[in-house]
Design a protein around this nucleic acid. Sequence first.
DNA 1: TCTGATTCTGCTTAT
DNA 2: CAGAATCAGA
Length: 750
Amino acid sequence: MIERDRILSALNPQQLEAVTAPDVPVLIVAGAGSGKTRVITRRVAFLIRDRGYRPWQIFAATFTNKAAAEMKRRVVQLLPHVPDNDLHIATFHSLCARILRREITALGFSSNFTIADERDQLSAIKHVMRELGISEKEVKPGYAQEVINQCKIRLLDPLRLGEYIESRYEEQLAAIYEAYEKYIHASSALDFEDLILMTVRLFTERADVLTRYQEKYLHVMVDEFQDINDSQFALVRLLTAAHHHLTVVGDEDQTIYSWRGADIRHILEFEKYYPERIVVRLEQNYRSTQTILNAANAVISHNTERFNKTLFTELPKGLPVLVLQAENDREEARAVAELALELSRRLGIAYSEMAIFYRTAALSRTYEEQLRSLNMPYRVVGGVRFYDRAEVKDMLAYLQVAQNPRNTLSLLRIINTPKRGLGDKTIGKLLGWARQRGTSLFDSIENAAKGGFLPAAATSAVAALVEKIRTWHADSTSKLPSELFAQIREDIGYDESLGDPEQMEVRSRLENLDELYNSIVAYERETPEATLASYLENVSLLSPVDEAKEGQDAITLMTLHMAKGLEFRCVFIVGCNEGLLPHARSVEEGHLEEERRLFYVGMTRAREVLVLSHCSHRTYYGEPRYDFPSPFLEEIPSPLVLHVDASRTNMARFVHDLSHGKREPPSESQRPNQQFYDATSRHELVSRQNLSPRSQRSSLVGKRVRHPLIGEGVVIESGGMGKERWYVVEGDDGSRVKFLARYAQFEVCE
DNA sequence: TCTGATTCTGCTTAT
DNA sequence: CAGAATCAGA
């Protein structure tokens, strides 16, 4: 027997089929935990070793840099002789940025474009709205931003905006879109969507360039294919048009980016564009216990927008799913922290094997507080991002300007930071000239520096700035990015401008700048030909996941969106409340099923222990508010669930019992009546009996109530969430009245 | 032009 | 509650 084949061993028949599939379009439908990453990395290795592909002939797109890094690492493990840099495995955005750096001049753009992040985009939109005289009340900048991005995803230019929205704002939005495009392109910036869009345009308009890339990339792979959007799919189709060598992996139950244009349709349409495609299904789960998997299957089966697939596992039954209930959000966080502590002590689960997932990043703070008070190590992924801090963005803006002085967006950020006497009036004048002449802001300050345009004080301030920028720009190619950083920081006296270094606030800002400096040095160390341009590109495409330091024994805190693709022995999904976990805004937009998929993604990250927590009072806008449990909780069959009341449970004792098999979900007959706080009266405990799970969800429907004004009646309907929650009560005389729950003063009759 | 204080407004999710 | 916008006053 020959030595076991590292690429083809330890695969089940379906996995083997997927790895070794012929060079035709292959759609791998891979359920959660079914070995998706294993299959895709081995296929890459297989193509290189057994099919004669050179590493750089494979274009493999992922959705996060983290996933790309992991994929690369595992391919290199399989093929140790392949240098890391030869593998073109990266996010769509990075791959496109790389192509555009080389080719965008063909579209008449400068190749040293900068990448505008979301905030830059928003400030650009506000800016052009001011110039167009459209007030922020007429059109909300955030809405305009959303519309612009959606158009770009759908490959619609401003003139065809009407195909995406139809409203009386249409003209204004089209005008904003057009002005925005002119503005950011004049400052030679591209936004995130442009990276994809421009690449598609390049390939569409320049057949010669497309042919070159089709000949270069002989095989295209896409991970998390269910999250691909129109423009990305268009790109994939262009690249593979000549050879159809394509492998995609996806799971429609894990589509969670439809707000970014992801559409299940693309999996369905795969067949339309690639009729000769073969499909391989991976349905065996190797990750979760039977209990967890059954719970997840039960939840996702409530969705209608899916193929029916049921995952199975051969792993043991495991512990019940724990549903933790608390009185308020702080108590919930406290209980989660205590439970995590006990699970680590008594079940030996390392903190690095635990994760806390939440729907909105804002929830992290409460959990951080509680974890800190128990002295437990944790790491927040995302949240208030390092690269979003003002001082970090300032210094990066200086570097952007040094690299490309025509970057108006960045120049605007730093033109008066630190203060150098260039106020709104002066800046307005300078911008006005720039616009009239169709040049950049830098051109107009260069002109103003010659004198005669501005008051003397402003002229000398401007001249000094121009001089500095010229020097930095000249140094930008000869000096290392870290050297330039230090020089700029010194030249402008940034540290001093922050104020008294004895202040905590100032000290932490200085520390952040030191950390930024260190990260630049680290980048230079690991990148052989580090340039300012390559560093800035790297920074702007960095996702929060990539910032987290690996390897420490700490609990991971992150949003459900970022959890995709990861796994942990123990998972807490917190804030399982109606309005938060099916997020009210998402439900309003008709995305209940997507919220359920999000919940499903979270559940299926757990290998052994799954804890779902909720609370009855949550603080919003500083006010405590009654919240219902998430309806998703009721979709888990009760024999799989063990309810835990945070206020009445000693966690140490509980986990002890749990680990000795003494805690089991109660059978139907011995389950105590659920008790809950009713929305109508925050302090009155209402006992609820004989209610089916369905009516529990809508709480009061079907109940008799008494109201001081209308007397007795029956609740016949309810809707809305949180503050907006309402009930319709039908009086005994047949009249109907609608109440907002937070104002309704009725009592429930038993 | 800059500052600090006060009022206003609004929490998804992220490359 | 917290960040943004706005305003008074130097």
